[in-house]
């Protein structure tokens, strides 16, 4: 997309002068202008961050190029990790795997823990939002539990499950569930009385009310919670994996540190950032799709 935008710009710039002066066919100038406008808009969004990235890269290169610098410059990072970049799929057994396998292992843990948190979180949030007594009973407990840092749960989880895998999943679950519960509850509490009246007149039963009114009405809030939740779970998995070991991008970073492969750490951080960004966009996009037209008018 970016490539296209950059390519089309000079073309339209060249084509513009004759169109403006002659304007014989009425159809062409419109499409040219539209392309030019689109290209301009895309360029306006893509070029500034590119320039900043380039500048930062140059700065980094200059700072780390000197002899005795503790961190590698980008050129060295590239040279060191070329193999990892171009062959993410190799698998030599044990922990010696391509980055794709590490990231996919981490994503699997997140998928398990996060899905569980989404289901349980929405259910609990609905309960707390709907029932005053459930709120009085549960809300103070949630408020205390949600302040516990994710990694503080890990020793307890390890003691309970006696295995790294379920413990990591539990940490994801316990980290991402709180914003989902709290946002769902707020969404349910904010359902307009009018919708409840409509449901009462039509005589929807509680199950129908949940699916046909509560979920769609609270969906914007629920997706806010889900989006915060996915961000937190990606934060937590990296830290948890550093401690539990095994295949996973978190332990890959820790392993690289132990063997003093700084370039690998930098590459892994880059990937972690990209994946986190994609996850966030994914949930945001899903939310947009599902809540299309839900906003009260």
């Amino acid at each position: 997309m970016n490539m296209q935008a950059i390519k089309t710009e000079p073309a339209t710039a060249l084509a513009k002068p004759p169109v403006a002066s002659v304007a014989l066919s009425p159809k062409q100038p419109v499409s040219f202008e539209r392309y030019a406008k689109m290209a301009k808009e895309t360029a306006a969004r893509v070029i500034p961050p590119l320039i900043v990235v380039l500048l930062l890269g140059v700065m980094w290169e200059l700072l780390c190029r000197r002899t005795g610098s503790t961190l590698p410059p980008p050129s060295k990072v590239y040279r060191d990790t070329k193999e990892l970049i171009f062959d993410p799929f190799f698998d030599n057994g044990g922990l010696d795997k391509g980055l794709f396998w590490h990231i996919s292992a981490s994503l699997q843990r997140v998928a398990f823990g996060y899905s569980l948190a989404a289901v349980v979180g929405i259910a609990l949030g609905t309960l707390v939002g709907q029932s005053v007594w459930a709120m009085r009973g549960l809300d103070p407990i949630f408020q205390v539990l949600r302040t516990i840092p994710p990694l503080a749960w890990l020793p307890l989880a390890l003691a309970a499950f006696r295995d790294g895998q379920p413990s990591a999943i539990f940490v994801i679950f316990i980290t991402s569930i709180w914003p989902i519960i709290i946002n769902t509850a707020v969404g349910i509490r904010n359902i307009p009385q009018d919708y409840r009246n409509v449901a009462a007149v039509v005589q929807l039963n509680p199950v129908e009310f949940f699916w046909k009114v509560m979920l769609p009405a609270a969906a914007p809030y629920i997706f806010t919670g889900l989006r915060i939740g996915i961000g937190l779970s990606w934060l937590a998995i990296i830290a948890a994996e550093m401690l539990i070991g095994g295949v996973g991008i978190g332990f890959f970073i820790w392993d690289a540190w132990n063997s003093s492969h700084m370039s690998e750490i930098i590459l892994a951080l880059f990937y972690v950032g990209i994946v986190g960004f994609v996850l966030d966009r994914l949930i945001a996009g899903l939310g947009k799709l599902v809540t299309h037209g839900t906003s009260v008018s």
Binding site: D194, N197, V201, Q203, P216, A217, T291
Partner: peptide
Amino acid sequence: SPGPDRAVVFQNHSLLPWLTVYQNVRLG
């Protein structure tokens, strides 16, 4: 208790915004 034998037309229409016009009527 409320029921469809005493249907209400609300002042602010109270249509469910995520349903189409047809679906809003069809619900009842």
